[in-house]
Measured scan of single mutants.
Amino acid sequence: EDYYQILGVPRNASQKEIKKAYYQLAKKYHPDTNKDDPKAKEKFSQLAEAYEVLSDEVKRKQYDA
């Protein structure tokens, strides 16, 4: 799945936009606030993985290549 789609940001998003999108979605899908939703944990880990790659310039360049 596309990391940009997961975070809901365009491919040319700035680091600030990526961070903002991640924090909004992380708050929304955090397992502690969605105890009754088994998919929230999965969504949250996808968000974390996408953010880890896109927030790191080197990893992001490799991902975009």
Results as ranks from 00 to 15, higher is better:
residue 62 Q to E: 15
residue 28 K to A: 10
residue 49 E to S: 09
residue 56 D to R: 01
residue 16 K to F: 15
residue 37 D to A: 05
residue 62 Q to R: 08
residue 41 K to Y: 14
residue 56 D to P: 01
residue 2 D to L: 04
residue 53 V to R: 02
residue 15 Q to D: 10
residue 16 K to W: 09
residue 60 R to L: 01
residue 31 P to E: 12
residue 37 D to Q: 06
residue 6 I to E: 02
residue 22 Y to K: 01
residue 42 E to Q: 12
residue 63 Y to V: 03
residue 10 P to V: 06
residue 34 N to L: 11
residue 48 A to C: 10
residue 34 N to A: 10
residue 56 D to E: 02
residue 19 K to F: 15
residue 44 F to W: 14
residue 11 R to P: 07
residue 23 Y to K: 15
residue 65 A to S: 11
residue 27 K to D: 15
residue 65 A to M: 12
residue 15 Q to N: 13
residue 43 K to H: 10
residue 38 P to C: 06
residue 50 A to E: 00
residue 3 Y to N: 02
residue 25 L to R: 06
residue 18 I to S: 00
residue 46 Q to A: 13
residue 32 D to Q: 10
residue 50 A to K: 00
residue 16 K to G: 15
residue 65 A to Y: 08
residue 16 K to D: 15
residue 65 A to N: 07
residue 56 D to H: 03
residue 43 K to V: 10
residue 19 K to Y: 13
residue 51 Y to S: 01
residue 13 A to V: 04
residue 12 N to V: 05
residue 46 Q to F: 09
residue 62 Q to K: 09
residue 16 K to L: 15
residue 35 K to I: 11
residue 54 L to Q: 00
residue 1 E to D: 11
residue 31 P to M: 07
residue 55 S to I: 06
residue 58 V to S: 10
residue 26 A to P: 00
residue 10 P to E: 13
residue 10 P to W: 04
residue 57 E to C: 08
residue 23 Y to G: 14
residue 42 E to K: 11
residue 15 Q to I: 13
residue 64 D to V: 01
residue 40 A to H: 08
residue 22 Y to P: 00
residue 16 K to S: 15
residue 57 E to Y: 07
residue 24 Q to H: 14
residue 21 A to V: 05
residue 38 P to N: 09
residue 23 Y to T: 15
residue 23 Y to V: 15
residue 29 Y to C: 06
residue 50 A to W: 01
residue 23 Y to M: 15
residue 46 Q to P: 03
residue 18 I to A: 01
residue 30 H to T: 05
residue 61 K to F: 05
residue 44 F to R: 08
residue 4 Y to V: 00
residue 14 S to P: 06
residue 14 S to Y: 03
residue 1 E to C: 12
residue 36 D to C: 08
residue 33 T to D: 08
residue 8 G to M: 05
residue 20 K to E: 15
residue 34 N to H: 13
residue 57 E to L: 06
residue 24 Q to W: 13
residue 13 A to Q: 01
residue 14 S to V: 04
residue 23 Y to N: 15
residue 8 G to D: 05
residue 61 K to N: 06
residue 41 K to Q: 13
residue 56 D to C: 04
residue 35 K to F: 12
residue 11 R to L: 04
residue 4 Y to N: 00
residue 8 G to C: 06
residue 9 V to H: 00
residue 59 K to S: 06
residue 22 Y to T: 01
residue 11 R to Q: 07
